[in-house]
Design a protein around this nucleic acid. Sequence first.
DNA 1: TCAATATATATGAAATATCGCATATATGAA
DNA 2: TTCATATATGCGATATTTCATATATATTGA
Lengths: 112, 112
Amino acid sequence: MDALALFKSLADETRLKTLLLITAKGELCVCELMAALQDTQPKVSRHLAQLRKAGLLSDRRQGQWVYYNLHPELPEWCLRVLQQTHLNNQACIRDGLQLLEKMPNRPGSECC
Amino acid sequence: MDALALFKSLADETRLKTLLLITAKGELCVCELMAALQDTQPKVSRHLAQLRKAGLLSDRRQGQWVYYNLHPELPEWCLRVLQQTHLNNQACIRDGLQLLEKMPNRPGSECC
DNA sequence: TCAATATATATGAAATATCGCATATATGAA
DNA sequence: TTCATATATGCGATATTTCATATATATTGA
């Protein structure tokens, strides 16, 4: 992961919020990100594909859902950059986190 | 300084190297950056203007030369991001630093 | 098998960023 | 003032990025 690739990945609002949301929550599926970001499915999916190709995210499918998390082999310094950004820019994803909580029928919840 | 603005500033090779060089050396003028980056004057100058407008750099004129340094009011977390990036991507500016050393008649040196 | 839901990708248009060249401005020396 | 050096910027051409729409694939349950 070279620095330029990292910063190009972070230089878009959708991708930045996506990474901060996943940094905050650990793991999220596409439909949760759609709710948190209030964006269309193709848009969210395309940005996730970019982050996956860049090596920032890895995905695992569980049934219908594909969950995304920070790539386990992400270098330490990249993690620290994400953590610093997350800790000092919580306002950036505050709305998104609230929308997540309000989601009915969260994937994986027992109620459905 | 919001996170998105920071990362957009870092998402270009010329600007990233410029910031890492200034992080390494503390202060550099335009002609030193031209030598280190091996780029044309208008190109270097234009990217410096962007970094200045974004609040990442501040400049001071000393005679004919304009020196650029990290903006004194840059938030701590931005500094830490730059430091982390610098410490873990030294190869990125190695050539540039060597070219700097080889510069004859460095601005501010006593020999001219 | 079919239908419904979740996710991925292709395509072309629109917006944005970058670059090269020419030129403008500022400073210092003669 | 005039010249030389250092730096900044306006502008058109080009490259890159992003988006919306349509469509394709995968999984589950009937």
